[in-house]
Write a protein that binds this DNA or RNA. Structure first.
Lengths: 370, 370
DNA sequence: CACCCACCCGAGAGCGCCCTCACCTCGGCA
DNA sequence: TGCCGAGGTGAGGGCGCTCTCGGGTGGGTG
C-alpha cells in the first residue's frame, strides 16, 4: 500500500539510541572503540527500526563496493551448455557471499561487448573482476589489464602474441608471472587453473600401465588453453604417437562420437582412448558399443573432469581425471578478495609475494572403463 | 604504477568545459534543455578526461541503482546442469545490458540463504528482482513479496497454500493476478512462463493423430509447476489413460532411461511416448534402441524444449515442443524494466493494466521421431 | 595533588551527484 | 518602446554515510 516507506537512516538510529551518528556508524561497522552499553543500545535501535545501511552512500566515501564482476566471454552457446561454468559460478557465489560481496554477472558476446565490459570495469563500479576467457585470441585479457582492475582469471589466460608451442609448463608459469607485473594497479595478474597437463599425463600413463600401446586422444577445441594443455600432456607420455591417433574435437558428446568414429576408421587397432573431457568420452563410449567393441576389454577409455551426473552414469562408469571445479571458483574468489584486502592496507612494498598462478592438482578416479 | 589515478569528477568536466556542474550534469544525462554549442563543449570535455559518472553518488540521490537481482534457488546441483537457466540468463543479460542495467546474481542453497536474499532485496540495493523458484513449497516467493521489491518470476510461481489440483489454467491465472495485488509496493507480482499445458496437449494430440492409442508420459519432477502443467496437458487429451502409462522422472537423461524401462516393463505394448523434456526423451530413445524398438515405427517419441545441441542430435532427431527459453528471459527483464519505469513516473492510478502473468506460446517442431 | 595518557565520544566536513530555484537573456507582442 | 514569458544557465542544498579531529572523562603515576 504505502509506497516504499522511507528507509531509516543512520541519523534515525543514532537519535533513537541517544548517541551521535559517528558512534552509531562505529557500531554498525563492527563496534570497535565503543563501550558495551552504547553498543547494546545502538544494536537495539537498529533492530527496532530495521535499519539497513545505504550501500550507495557508504561506497561514495569508502570507495569500496563490496561487489565483484564475473565476466564470461561466450563465443558460442556451447560455453554454457557445459555445466562447467555453472559449477565455478557456484563456488564463486559461495565464497563471495561468505564475505558479503555481491556478484555482478557480465556475459559478453562479441567485439562491441568487449568495449562495454572494458568501460564498465574501468568505471570503478566493482572492486575487482573474475574473468573467464577461454580463447587464445581473446582481446579481453588485454583490455582488462589496461582497465587497471584487480583481476583473477579462470583458467590460464593466454596473452602471448600468437606464437606458442611446446615449452614446458614451468616456463609458461614464469612467463605469466612476469607479464602479470606492471599492470592492474600494482600487483600481479593472477589466475587459477587445474593442472591439465599433469592430469593428462597421469591418465595416459595409466592406460600405458594397463599395457595399452595404441592410445588415441580426442582433444577439446585447441584454441582453449585447457584443451591445448591436455594435448601437451598426452604428447609428453606418447612422445612419438602416430598423428592419426589424435583427433580434434569440441568437448561435446556429439563431437566425441564423431571423433571416435574417425579414429576407429583410421586406426581400427587402437586399444585405448583418452578423451579431453567426460562429455566427449561419453560420446566415444556410445560409438564403441555401437561398433561392438567392449570397454575396457577391447578399448580402455578415460575422460577428464569427473563431471558428476555424467561420469558415473555412463556404461560402463567412466574412469576419469577429477578436477574440483567448484573449488576452482571458490579459490578464484578467495584470491581476489584477499588481494583486495591487501590493497586496502597501505602495503609496505610491492607484494610480489602473491603467486601469479595457482594450479590445482588433479586426481585419477578409477571406475570401470579403464 | 600510479595507484588508481583519481577519477575525474563532474566538477572537473564542468571546469574544463567552462560551464557549471548543473549544465554538465544535464548533458551527461541526455542533454535536454542545453544549447548545442555547450552540449558539444561538455561532450568533448567528457571524452578528453575519460569521465565516467560515479554510480554510487548518482544512486544516492536518484534512489535508482540500474541494477536488477537475479535469484536462482538451487535446491540441487541438477538445476544448473540443465542448460535451461543458462539460456534464460543469457536472454536476461542481453535485455538488461541493452538498458544499461546490471545483473546481480544471487544463488541460494538452503533456508538461511533465503533469509539472506530477503534481507538483501529489502535492503534496497537493487531496483527489482527476477526470480526463479521452481519448487512448490519454496518460501522464497512469499519472502520476496514481503520485501516489497518489484519482481518478475520465471515460471509460474506457486504460492497457493498447499492445495492444488485440476483447476483449469484460466482459473489459475486469475488467481495469480488477484494475489499479485496488495504486496510489492503497489503493483502486481508478475511472471513469465511457457504455455506448458497447451504445449503438452499439442504434442499428445499429434501422437494421437498419428494413430497411436497407447501413449505413455515420462514426467518431470512434479513439484515443479512446469512438470505438473505438462502432465495436466497430457491428461487433458488422454483423459482416462491407464495410470501405468505415466511415470514420474526428473528431467535428466538417466532418469529418462529409467522411466522408459519401467514403462516398457509395465506396458510392453505402448506405441508412443511424450517425455516432459528433451533430456529425458534422449534417455528414452536410448532404451528403446537397446530393446530393439524402432523409432518412430514401433514407438513414436516427442520431447519438450527443443534444446538445441540435444534435440537435433539424437538418433533419430527428436520431434519436440519448442519454447523460446532465451526469449522468456528477455521478456522477464523487459517486463521488470518497464514496470520500474512506470513506477518512477507518478502513475495516475493503480496500473492494473499490466497482466500479472505472461504466457508464451509453444510450437511443435517436427523431426523424425514422431 | 597535579599531570599525563589512553580511551571514548560527538561535531562537522566532505564523498560526487542531481535537482530546485532564482536569475538572466531574448524574442514576441501590445 | 516597454513588458512579459519561455527557455537556458548557475548557485547551492542535500542524499546517507565515513572519518578526522578535538574535547572530555577516568585512572594511573610522580
Amino acid at each position: 500500500m504505502t509506497d516504499t516507506a522511507p528507509r531509516p537512516t543512520l541519523e534515525a538510529v543514532a537519535a533513537r539510541a541517544g548517541v551521535s551518528r559517528a558512534t552509531a556508524s562505529r557500531v554498525v561497522n563492527g563496534g570497535d572503540g565503543v563501550r558495551e552499553p552504547l553498543v547494546e543500545r545502538v544494536r537495539r535501535a537498529v533492530d527496532e527500526l530495521g535499519y539497513v545501511p545505504n550501500q550507495a552512500a557508504r561506497s561514495l566515501v569508502t570507495r569500496r563496493h563490496d561487489a565483484v564482476a564475473v565476466v564470461i566471454a561466450e563465443p558460442e552457446t556451447r560455453v554454457f551448455a557445459d555445466p562447467f561454468f555453472a559449477l565455478q559460478l557456484r563456488g564463486i557465489s559461495k565464497e563471495l557471499t561468505a564475505h558479503d560481496n555481491q556478484l555482478v554477472l557480465l556475459l559478453t558476446e562479441g567485439r562491441d561487448d568487449h568495449a562495454r565490459v572494458g568501460r564498465y570495469l574501468a568505471g570503478g563500479h566493482v572492486d575487482g573482476a573474475l574473468v573467464f576467457s577461454l580463447h587464445l585470441d581473446d582481446p579481453l585479457p588485454g583490455l582488462i589489464r589496461r582497465a587497471g582492475v584487480p583481476t583473477v582469471f579462470g583458467g590460464r589466460p593466454d596473452w602471448s602474441d600468437g606464437e606458442d608451442g611446446d615449452r614446458d609448463p614451468a616456463a609458461r608459469d614464469t612467463d605469466a608471472a612476469d607479464r602479470g607485473e606492471g599492470a592492474g594497479g600494482g600487483g600481479g595478474v593472477m589466475y587459477v587453473d587445474s593442472d591439465n597437463r599433469d592430469g593428462a599425463r597421469t591418465a595416459v600413463r595409466h592406460l600405458v600401465g594397463l599395457g595399452r600401446t595404441r592410445v588415441a586422444h580426442i582433444t577439446g577445441p585447441l584454441d582453449q588453453t585447457s584443451a591445448a594443455d591436455r594435448l601437451d600432456g598426452f604428447r609428453d607420455v606418447r612422445v612419438d604417437a602416430d598423428p592419426r591417433l589424435v583427433e580434434e574435437s569440441d568437448f561435446t558428446p556429439a563431437g566425441g562420437e564423431r571423433a571416435m568414429r574417425e579414429l576407429l576408421d583410421r586406426r581400427p587397432d587402437l586399444n585405448a582412448v583418452f578423451a579431453a573431457n567426460d562429455l566427449s568420452a561419453a560420446g566415444a563410449l556410445r560409438v564403441l558399443r555401437e561398433r561392438g567393441l567392449r570397454v575396457p576389454q577391447d578399448v580402455a577409455v578415460i575422460g577428464f573432469d569427473d563431471m558428476l551426473p555424467v561420469a558415473d552414469q555412463t556404461d560402463p562408469p567412466l574412469t576419469t581425471v577429477r578436477q574440483d571445479i567448484e573449488e576452482m571458483g571458490r579459490l578464484m574468489a578467495r584470491l581476489l578478495l584477499s588481494r583486495l584486502d591487501h590493497r586496502a592496507t597501505p602495503a609496505h612494498g610491492a607484494d610480489t609475494g602473491t603467486p601469479a598462478g595457482v594450479i590445482l592438482p588433479t586426481t585419477l578416479i578409477r571406475r570401470a572403463s579403464a
